[in-house]
């Protein structure tokens, strides 16, 4: 198990290095000079040159790459070209919204999907299954911003249970924060839950047909016991893959939902940074997201091994 984990750590580190080179390279070849963009079209050439020197843009690519990577490792993400503020601080503020939102949405989606998938699988072909599957069709098909608007209409405008948008800040208390994130989280979670339900159902149905499930029944387990003791853990492997992918998506992909609910999250930050040629912010946010994706995949890999002993010994 330790050997397996170590191997995964090594591959995680290699992925990060490759990703950082690619991100840096892509942002470098993108047209537009941040210094002249910041100073406007009427700037004097020597002012631009001075700013370039200040931002470190006159150094060689290698120097800038190394400075960027070393800075990130030590927690110094650099200074934003447009806001003249610490990128680390900017990302940190946004992360405090995006990360809880993603986790909240993922938790909701899992809480909905596991029982729904289990229920549908155990009633295969019966009305209960048909209803659940129909609902998931709808959940996959309808875009989440439409859900978001409906939620605002119903729960914020008509019922007035929640605010229609904005974020009060965590200093107002955990409850206030969570309350503000609830509608966005639900809007994000519904389509994900629909996908996860379908995966859970089909994965369980595959397992139900396995020989060892029949063996379990022959031992005297009831159908329910057989599913709980032998089915779930085996069915979890494909489900974990999807959960991992969903988390990465939820962390960065919430930009439309952030717009709908006026949430200052990571998605909005990177969107603004791109339009303003704020390369250092783009690089850092993208790198952070890449790190999140790779790290979540690493966790999923570890979870696989925890679930499936065959993976442990193969490593």
């Amino acid at each position: 198990m330790l050997r397996y984990a170590l191997k995964k750590v090594v591959s995680l580190a290699i992925s990060l290095i490759i990703a950082s080179v690619v991100i840096f390279g892509v942002v470098e070849v993108a047209p537009g000079d941040p210094a002249s963009y910041m100073l406007g079209i009427n700037a004097q050439p020597d002012t631009v040159a001075a700013l370039r020197a200040e931002l470190g843009l006159d150094q060689s690519r290698w120097q800038r790459y190394l400075a960027w990577v070393c800075g990130m490792v030590t927690g110094d993400f650099g200074i934003s070209y447009t806001y003249r503020a610490s990128v680390g601080g900017m990302i940190g503020d946004r992360l405090w919204i995006s990360l809880p939102l993603a986790l909240y949405a993922l938790t909701l989606s899992t809480i909905i999907a596991f029982p729904a998938g289990l229920y549908a699988a155990s009633r295969r072909g019966k009305p209960g299954d048909v209803v659940v599957m129909g609902a998931t069709q709808l959940g996959v098909a309808v875009p989440n911003f439409w859900f978001a608007m409906m939620l605002v209409l119903i729960f914020a405008i008509t019922l007035r249970w929640f605010g229609a948008g904005g974020f009060p800040g965590w200093e107002k208390g955990l409850f206030a924060g969570m309350k503000a994130l609830t509608l966005p989280a639900v809007a994000l979670a519904l389509p994900q839950a629909a996908i996860l339900t379908r995966v859970m159902r089909s994965s369980l149905l595959d397992i139900l047909g396995e020989d060892f499930m029949r063996t379990a029944r022959a031992k005297g387990l009831s159908q329910r016991q057989a599913i709980w003791r032998h089915g779930l853990r085996n069915a979890l492997i494909p489900v974990l893959t999807i959960v991992g992918l969903q988390f990465s998506f939820l962390l960065a992909g919430g930009i439309i939902i952030e717009q709908v609910f006026f949430l200052p999250g990571l998605g909005r930050l990177v969107f603004q940074a791109i339009t303003q040629r704020d390369l250092i912010v783009v690089e850092s946010v993208v790198m952070l997201l890449v790190f999140a994706v790779i790290f979540v995949n690493f966790l999923v890999d570890l979870a696989y091994a925890a679930v499936d002993p065959r993976l442990r010994s193969r490593a």
């Binding site: 379990a216 005297g220 009831s222 853990r233 679930v307």
Partner: peptide, 27 residues
Amino acid sequence: DAQMCQLRGNEIGMIFQEPMTALNPVQ
């Protein structure tokens, strides 16, 4: 079925054809 569950494994044991798949791989 609940009564049969009492009997299966207790009074009646069963052995299957495919030993490669008859066991739960994660236990």
